[in-house]
Design a protein around this nucleic acid. Structure first.
Lengths: 116, 116
DNA sequence: TCCAATACTTACCAAAAAGTAACCTCTTCC
DNA sequence: GGAAGAGGTTACTTTTTGGTAAGTATTGGA
């Protein structure tokens, strides 16, 4: 059975603050959010792995965004009481629902690159 | 023939600043951008229509975002020298490529609504 | 004793994004 | 001589976002 067709609100209807696009934008907004999600779509990641792979992000921003995404129910973490401690982050079922968004962004972003 | 399968960068590869997702995020970032694009996906709109339909946006923000999107080649405008003057905004071919992104965001946003 | 490693937090600061309110231009209608 | 209406701009302020640097906790190892 095919996936449900993508539905955009009808042509005339304005995008109210509670419109699905606005709700998604509130969560996905920010320089780093979609990049963090993109990396987590590749599987579980540790804090230090993300800090390294998202070149340029500061520890503060990373933990801030991670905390926000956790609050919003998109990711969850596990801390292992080893020495030194270790923390794993992974997407929740809700978080995995952003895959189509990130994929569509990647496809759009490829149109943007001057030379592939 | 089916659409090309959505491709996300391979699991291990970090999201560099020039990764497609980051490039798309730079343009789609901000509280209003995707909402403006959402409305324009419904067809040509006038400045005053957008000002009204994007409830809460200020004239300054709207013209700022519109100018930015024009610079980035996603929209174009036409001004008619009527009295009073009239301006139409519409998506360019590049701008229409954001449709899948906005659709995916809408689908994700619908998961977020507590009730419908 | 001090350093290393991991995963943070805190205080402080700079820059960017967004909001508010007022103003501007032009012309036609009252 | 206004006001109205479209499409903005300007100056000013606030809020949000992001960055830097340093500090915290734990404990095994040199």
């Amino acid at each position: 059975m095919p996936a449900a067709p993508p539905v955009l609100p009808p042509a005339g209807s304005p995008c109210q603050p509670d419109c699905p696009v606005a709700l998604a934008a509130r969560i996905l907004d920010g320089r780093w959010t979609t990049r963090i999600l993109r990396d987590l779509l590749g599987g579980t990641r540790r804090y230090s792995e993300l800090l390294h792979s998202l070149s340029g992000i500061s520890p503060k921003m990373l933990s801030q965004r991670l905390r926000f995404l956790e609050q919003e129910g998109l990711i969850e973490k596990t801390t292992y009481p080893t020495v030194p401690p270790r923390t794993d982050y992974r997407l929740t079922p809700l978080g995995r629902q952003v895959r189509p968004v990130v994929e569509a962004m990647a496809a759009f972003g490829r149109q943007l690159t001057p030379s592939g």
